[in-house]
């Protein structure tokens, strides 16, 4: 089985550690050859997925480690994000439908963009809950989209 180049990082699930962790892993992936056109997409999808862990999975809990495992192949990247926080509601990946922009200033949404962006920027999302751990897999195919 092809394994690609492996990159692992883990950090405490707090906002400041997550911010630094995402910056670090994005830099490392670029140094390992992540094609430039996808670097930005990968960075934001990771940031959103990890923000969800920090803000929702560990909501009301003492933050523990979040582990990121990347396998960079020539034409795709697999990222596995593991945490020991609360499961996704209903054990389902949220749809990520963009909230309507509304017609007035006060109706403009200030949130709800996170899962939408993850869906937009990834090729495949898988989620599994086992042994008290959340395992979210994101795949990025390096193919040109029109």
């Amino acid at each position: 089985m092809q394994t690609g180049k492996c990159l692992d990082l883990s950090f405490l699930a707090t906002q400041s550690k997550a911010s630094a962790g995402v910056a670090r892993i994005s830099q490392d992936l670029e140094a390992q050859g992540l094609p430039a056109p996808w670097a930005g997409d990968v960075k934001i999808a990771l940031a959103e997925a990890i923000n969800n862990v920090v803000e929702h999975a560990y909501a009301g809990l003492t933050p523990a480690e979040v582990e990121i495992r990347c396998q960079l192949h020539k034409t795709w990247l697999d990222v596995l994000i593991t945490d020991t926080g609360n499961p996704l509601p209903g054990l389902c990946i949220p749809d990520g439908i963009l909230a309507p922009l509304g017609s007035t200033l006060s109706e403009l949404p200030e949130g709800g963009f996170g899962w939408f962006l993850i869906h937009e920027l990834t090729s495949e999302i898988r989620y599994e809950r086992s042994n008290g751990r959340n395992r979210l897999s994101l795949r990025f195919d390096f193919v040109q989209t029109v």
């Binding site: 934001i44 200033l105 949130g111 996170g114």
Partner: peptide
């Protein structure tokens, strides 16, 4: 160089703070 959905939300909130 980088903005995420929370940052985007904060800019939207800043516009709302300015009023109409």
């Amino acid at each position: 160089e980088f903005i995420d959905s929370s940052g985007l939300g904060a800019i939207v909130a800043s516009m709302k703070q300015l009023g109409s």
